[in-house]
Design a protein around this nucleic acid. Sequence first.
RNA 1: GUGGGUGUAGCUCAGCUGGUAGAGCACUGGAUUGUGGCUCCGGAUGUCGAGGGUUCGAGUCCCUUCACUCACCCCA
Length: 443
Amino acid sequence: MATSSLQAIRGMNDVLPADTGVWRYIEQSLGDILLAYGYREIRTPVVEKTELFKRSIGEVTDIVEKEMYTFDDRNGDNLALRPEGTASCVRAVLQSGLINQGVQRLWYAGAMFRRERPQKGRYRQFHQIGSEVFGLSGPDIDAEMIMMTNRFWQKLGIENVRLHINSLGNLESRSRYREALVTYLERHIGKLDNDSRRRLHTNPLRILDSKHPDVRVVVESAPCLTEYLDESSRQHFQGLCDRLDAVGISYVLDDKLVRGLDYYSDTVFEWTTDSLGAQGTVCAGGRYDGLVSQLGGQPMPAVGFALGIERLTEMLPDIQAERSPHIYFVGVGDAVQVALYRLSERLRSDIPGLRMIVNCGGGSFKSQFKKADKSGATVALVLGERELHEHNIVVKFLRRDAPQEMVSYDQLAGRMTEILNIRERPKVVASDAEVCNNRQASV
RNA sequence: GUGGGUGUAGCUCAGCUGGUAGAGCACUGGAUUGUGGCUCCGGAUGUCGAGGGUUCGAGUCCCUUCACUCACCCCA
């Protein structure tokens, strides 16, 4: 790789044709499940005012302090590439008034940006699929989301993931706990590493999931978050556990699980794996009942989660979606070139869903057949001078030991349909409204 | 931001104590002048990541820098 100047930005990757199939497979599979649970898609801009993220994620989090891509717009606004999806989603829902139109089950997918040092499973531009629900305060919706994510893994065939759950309690109990924790940690300050000391007064809960061995020992006997929960938080959390038990989803109660973003309260959860090295979190989320009002709306309960697509792609076996062409159309000789396109275009019209590569750039029979083989096509159609005169086409099987056939122009589409067993993809419905209309029409 | 490892052909890599590049795969042409996959024969390909230094001479040694990668950190 000698070209140095025209490279992609560090930590921002191309997804090449060999991999786009996996991406599509993930996006489509998860999109289907979200649709099945009644979640609707929302799309928001990649750029927002920096202020939005400061007020939601938290001023003293690492994301806001040192990982955001920010810049001044020409009018003086300070803007940022979004480091996560929740803040934008809340903003959009407030701005549009959707928040006042009853319960909203929403999902989004898109690129997020954090300026971190790249490593396995962590990139500066990465892609998340996430979901946010507004207007429900009970543990039922928390459970629903976890059930839905559980279904993601089933659908994708991912088995080596574990669910961790915890409750952070409401704002009051959390700040009481925070005080107790700080008091405790200050007594053991000698054993804390620099990072933990720095956090002691900015984001002390994060010290709980430190990987530093000495710090872990200190944390072992720290005050327990669970003991500070009030009755309603306890009941909420118990309600979640009961529902997970009921559907047979196993989980680890992890009282050291806190999340890095400030806005979480009560339920937090995390799906992790040990097959991804240091970046083991595949999907994470939780409840954030305070965020909507924090951003200027009426108080409104909310839950959400996000998952990292790159991390999923690395956990998936090579599921090469069947995308090879059905037909490679070989055409040799100047005289056949016009007829070649008359036939191939007619064939495309006659067989919806047909995947066909028409040879371009000329070449001998031999070289065209080599390309046909390499394309992975099931059959080669052959049009040469001879076929042109006799008004027929040679059908040659590339993957099966069968004699080649001679077919007339008029029989071609019929014979190809027999051979290739093509299923047309179901039509995508444009909008929810259209679904309703269709339903009424068919009643 | 901090540490470790690695940068040689499109890909995977070899290149001993310094003597100015090689293999396999892939690509391409032919054997087979209208038929791919197997076999055989031939061909093209490199600013040896970049810049500087030491040396008669640097892929090889030294410095700087960039990128990739893993871990810390962070988090999806």
